[in-house]
Amino acid sequence: MLDRRAFTLGATLTAAATLCGGTARAQVVARAGLGKAEILVLSDGGFQLPLSMLARDTPLPQLEAMTGSKGPSETVLNVTCLKRGNETILFDCGAGANFLAGSGKLAASLEAAGIAPDSVSHVVFTHLHPDHLWGALDEFDSPAFPKATWLAARDEVAFWTDAKVYERLPEDRHAFAAGAQRVLKGLQDGLKTFAAGEEVLPGIAAVATPGHTPGHVSFEIKDGSDRLLVLGDAATHPVASFAHPEWRPASDHDADQAVQTRKAVLGRAADEKLRVVGYHLPKGGIGTVERTGQAFRFIPAAA
């Protein structure tokens, strides 16, 4: 079994990540209609990160002024669930038992929603970071959703399984690669890959949003004329990511590429009046995006 203490988002996260009391409950944190389908946002818990991780090149006093806090930044983990007909589709599947304290609540949230593990038909990954992937295996290293088809971007899988991946990562993220390789191996023949731009399932198209990871994708879901964009980690903070899309979070693999991606995907959401759901955004993560000059504003659907 992997030791969660070995896994970090940089050395500072290991020291500072703590249980995020209010966000760690198992629960359905939001519901929304999408055409004839239903969207549930399920909590995988949460933890806290140092403010410095919001932007690696921005002075701490500026971050404190922007957030209105001198303390750590609370991070929630939102798993989007699409229920339509006989399908139950998860977008990412949480951190499982071996990441940071406060995470790994998805199984209990599914139970609270009345969703049995063997009723999940598909799990679609935005990317393969621990808090999105490691919940794919249970405590016996078997697939947590035994009847599911698992879908991940081809470029993302190629990056994490490449023999030279460790040369392309700082040492404190080597365990991310080891964990990704272990989980992907555990999924075996159930894993299928796709290219960004493809329709991965009827009405669900993969949108290229690289930078946070090399093969990161978002997903546009359509049901009739209704649409919703699952952002994944293309935007990770409800203020910083929107008001300062040019800031460079410490968790982004290619910060420059992530900045361009963030500006583009938020611009599209604002211009097309798309609803979005973000993995780390508060109040269930569902909302809309507005332009404010050269930047943006996130308007949560939940009051």
Rank of each mutant, 00 (worst) to 15 (best):
P50G: 10
A113G: 15
G71I: 08
C81S: 05
A113V: 09
M53Y: 14
L100P: 00
A55R: 11
D44F: 04
T126Q: 15
T126M: 14
C93T: 05
W134Y: 13
G102R: 00
G114T: 15
L90E: 05
L60T: 14
D118S: 14
L110T: 11
H129M: 13
F47A: 08
E74C: 11
D118P: 13
T58A: 05
N86F: 10
N78A: 12
T75M: 14
F91Y: 15
C81P: 01
S121E: 06
A107Q: 01
S103K: 08
L77D: 07
A113P: 01
T126F: 12
F99D: 01
G46T: 03
P61I: 05
V120Q: 05
G45V: 12
P61E: 04
Q48F: 05
G71C: 13
A65R: 09
P117T: 04
N78C: 14
V120A: 10
F99R: 02
K83S: 03
G45S: 12
R84T: 03
G94K: 00
T75E: 12
F91T: 11
K83Q: 03
H127P: 00
A116C: 15
S121P: 15
D131M: 04
L110F: 15
K105Q: 12
M66V: 05
M53H: 12
V76I: 06
L63Q: 08
N78I: 15
V79W: 01
D118Q: 11
A112Q: 03
F99S: 05
G102C: 05
P50I: 05
V123I: 07
K70S: 13
L90I: 15
D44Y: 09
S121A: 08
A108P: 00
N78S: 12
S52C: 10
L82G: 06
G85N: 08
A107S: 04
G46P: 02
I115L: 13
G45R: 03
S109W: 01
L82M: 14
S73W: 11
T88H: 02
S52V: 13
L133T: 12
F99Q: 00
M66W: 04
P117Q: 12
H127F: 04
K105P: 06
V120N: 04
N98A: 08
I89W: 00
L54Q: 02
L77C: 07
T58M: 02
V123Q: 00
H127Q: 06
N86V: 09
H132A: 14
N98T: 09
P130L: 12
E74K: 06
G68M: 08
L49D: 01
G94V: 08
E64C: 13
A55W: 07
V76K: 00
E87I: 08
D44G: 07
G45P: 11
G68V: 03
S103R: 05
A55L: 08
S109C: 06
R56N: 09
D44R: 06
Q62Y: 01
V124Q: 00
